[in-house]
Simulated scan of single mutants.
Amino acid sequence: MEMLAKELRDNGLDAIYLGPSTDLEYISGLDTHPDERVRGLMVSNDGRCFAMTPLLYKEEMVKAFGDVPFYAEWNDHEGFTGAFKRGCEHLGIVGGKIAFNDGVRAVDMLAIRDEMDMQMFGGGKILDPLRSRKDAEELEIMREASCIVDAVVYKLKDFIRPGMTERQIAKKIPEFFEEAGSNEMSFGPIVASGPNGSMPHYGGDQRVIEENDVIILDLGGRHKGYCSDTTRTLFVGTPTEEQRKVYEIVRQAQEAGEAAVKPGATGQDVDRAARQVIIEAGYGEFFFNRVGHGIGLAVHESPYMIEGNDTPLEPGNVFSVEPGIYLPGKFGVRIENIVAVREDGTGEALNHFPRELTTVRSTD
């Protein structure tokens, strides 16, 4: 709360309102999901706060927030705007500069605007400087989360066989996570086989796995609130010469991206190091997204490994390095590790499933 208050002062803001989101979870420990009943936490630039709660959620909110000085309570029949105004009056921020994070619906912001005087600002990045620097406890949790997802990939390697559908494999992934120690997914897993692998965020699941297929597996689970994320590309049977060539280029690109994490490096440096390998190999047009994203309580958060990000990486930053080559109508290859920045500025790979070309048995 003290660090958040300082960020507000540094940004010239009087307060920030955090709706249901990973921001709210980071500050309070409350993991809740947005719905039409407005709830959350308002934090002022002097560290004071009020909790916004419908009576329906009051017990849950009090359990999470404890002795918050003021609860702005509201009932279904009266609506939330009056309670919101009372909370702002309690903090003395009516008419002030108030930021709203991305856990707040636009329609609710408009209702607040019509009810009371304030200057509204986007607050989606206010907590980035805090959340992007993981402390020792957070880093250890993320190491554990990465070990869990590695274990799931090993299970999938032994499970996958020709004749299965992508859906059959995807449905098995949550079960494997639970067996490995995680009962919540970071995101819906991607199982992209054959020509479907050329679509980086492929969303289908009906194709049947065939002999000599290339399969992209992108998956992650939450552990103690923190996300894991990894991608491995597996081969069914014997890869073709072209498949081997593309895989080796991506492997070298991923390795180069990790190696670029050193004192003074930026997100742009990591992106360029991985991308250059693919460009020099003649496949630059088939890699069209950023190299990586930060990860923590959210699967995508600051910092981003992308052209234009010239902010130096800091100890405690945790992010993915995941170059790929996507050949339309043929296949795709992606390899992803999560990397943490050590105190000396170098990178620590949190995933340990081999990056070398891996095949699954084509027949039982």
Rank of each mutant, 00 (worst) to 15 (best):
P174E: 07
A106T: 13
A253N: 06
F121T: 12
E36N: 14
M120R: 02
T358F: 00
S362T: 06
F176P: 00
P34R: 08
K85H: 13
A180C: 08
L24G: 03
I209Y: 03
G163Q: 07
E140H: 12
M118N: 01
G188C: 09
I338E: 05
L313R: 03
S198D: 08
E166V: 02
R113W: 13
M61I: 15
H300G: 01
A180V: 07
V261P: 03
R161E: 01
T81P: 13
Y71F: 14
V62Y: 10
S228Y: 03
R167E: 14
G122S: 15
T22S: 12
P323S: 01
R222M: 03
K171N: 02
V104E: 08
D135Y: 06
D31T: 10
R86P: 00
A145L: 03
V291C: 13
S362F: 01
E25R: 14
G332Y: 06
W74K: 07
P174W: 05
G19A: 00
F319H: 09
F70I: 11
G47I: 12
V104Q: 09
R222T: 01
H293G: 11
A349K: 12
D114M: 15
V107C: 04
R275M: 11
D344Q: 05
R113T: 12
R272L: 05
M61V: 14
F80Q: 07
I16A: 15
Y71I: 13
I112A: 12
G347E: 14
L217R: 00
K245I: 02
H300Q: 07
M61N: 10
F235M: 09
A64H: 11
D205S: 15
T359A: 06
N289E: 15
V360P: 01
G264K: 10
E285I: 14
M116V: 12
N289G: 07
G316V: 08
F287C: 14
M42K: 09
R131I: 15
K58R: 15
M109F: 08
E336F: 02
L350K: 04
G221R: 05
G220N: 03
G82K: 12
F319I: 08
P303I: 12
R290D: 15
K171G: 01
N289M: 15
H300M: 09
S228F: 01
S198C: 09
M142I: 05
I93K: 04
K155H: 06
G282R: 10
L55E: 15
P189S: 01
C227W: 05
P200C: 03
D269Q: 09
A281R: 04
G194Q: 10
E241V: 14
E7S: 13
V107M: 08
G194K: 11
A192N: 01
G204F: 04
L91D: 07
R334P: 00
K134G: 05
I27R: 09
G345K: 10
Y26L: 12
G324P: 03
Q252I: 03
V152P: 03
M185L: 13
